[in-house]
Amino acid sequence: MKKLEIHSLPLKEVISDIALGLGTEYTQDCGEYIVHIPEKWGEGSIKGINFDGGLGLLIYKCLFHQEVEMQFTVNKTHPLKFLFCLNGDLTHHFEKDQQEHHLQQYQNIIVASKDHNGHVLNFKENVLTEIYSLEIDRSKFNSTRSCELEKTKPNLREVFMDEKGINSFYYNGLYSLVLAEIFEDMKSQEYDHLIKRIYLESQSYRMLIHQLIQYDDDTDINSDNKILRKSEAHAIQEAVEIMKLELDSLDSLNTIAHRVGLSPRKFQAGFRHFFGKSANEYVQTLRLNLAKDLLINTADSLQEIKDKVGFSSQSYFTELFKKTFRDTPSNYRKKHRGK
């Protein structure tokens, strides 16, 4: 295992220490600091940028040829960190606490160390790891937000107001679909200079906003989680495939939701997010589109088509088909069969 000791806090010095440990140089462009991983270590880069008001952003996109441990150890209160894992597998632990916190794809953690204890990040061998880390100097960040913080819910207020690091803090969750979209937007941006900096700052604050909203959602013991997570998007796609394969004999939608590991509420929220309609409406659309295809391209009877697409009632099938395509199934077949 290779170990990098990082004894500084401002992101410029963080990148400088990482470059020194890797035996290379870093570059600077209008306040953005970048170190490229040397070939003998691996590939990729680590970027850092500071914004006004105590907010900073570190972006790790690296693949190391062997396990690498980054030790952020300085005798000062460390920033409050929000880490998001876009790809790969990372572990974190506090400097004087060996209990590891695993961070895998689509997961995020919020960590604050106690006293002057630092943070240790462990990057696995030959695993492409992509991490976005928001770093908040709570003293600077709080200086213009004292009124709002006083009125914030106790759990968040205590974390932000703990400027001296009296207590440690750890939270683990699955980041939301909105956050995933922010990361994709940030990766695809092609702005330069002034626009780029303002854009990255605004997106960093968006990340913070939606992470705090998600944390509030996760810690609300009085209701089911409402926010759709990135990992749950895959479950929705799995549900769609089940619907297509089992259209003629579908179980109840609640059963499908259970099969893909979603609550009925999240299941419906996912379909509305991706398709703009409920899961029932989506199934109905699948059935009617398949029925239309069978009418044109097969010699199946209307009864056979009705059964194949999963309608139990012929009259209901005809009613829905006419409402959607403005014609009965038999007339639609006559008009389009020869075309």
Rank of each mutant, 00 (worst) to 15 (best):
C147Y: 08
A112I: 09
A180K: 08
G261M: 03
F271L: 04
D307V: 07
C30Y: 12
K164Q: 12
Q189I: 10
K323W: 03
L11Q: 04
D97Y: 01
Y26S: 05
D327K: 15
F123R: 04
E43C: 06
L128E: 15
S231C: 09
G310K: 02
G165S: 07
D251V: 08
H7Y: 05
L194S: 02
I110A: 06
L302T: 02
T255H: 08
R287M: 10
Q99W: 04
D300R: 02
E238P: 03
E181S: 15
I182T: 06
H36R: 12
I227Q: 00
E67F: 11
K244R: 15
L288Q: 08
R272F: 09
R333E: 04
C30Q: 12
L194I: 10
K61H: 08
I195C: 03
A269T: 15
D293W: 12
G21N: 15
Q71L: 12
Q104H: 10
A112E: 13
Q203P: 02
S330N: 12
S188R: 13
H102Y: 08
H7R: 13
L128F: 15
F311L: 06
Q105W: 00
H36M: 06
K151N: 06
M161S: 14
Q303S: 13
R272I: 10
D192H: 15
N142D: 00
F94G: 00
Y170C: 10
L103F: 00
Q104D: 04
V120H: 07
L212F: 04
D192S: 14
H273A: 04
G173Q: 14
K322R: 15
F321P: 04
I6H: 07
W41S: 01
K187G: 08
K96M: 00
E158M: 11
F160H: 04
S223T: 06
Q98P: 15
Q71I: 14
N254F: 01
R287D: 01
Q189A: 08
G54F: 14
S263H: 05
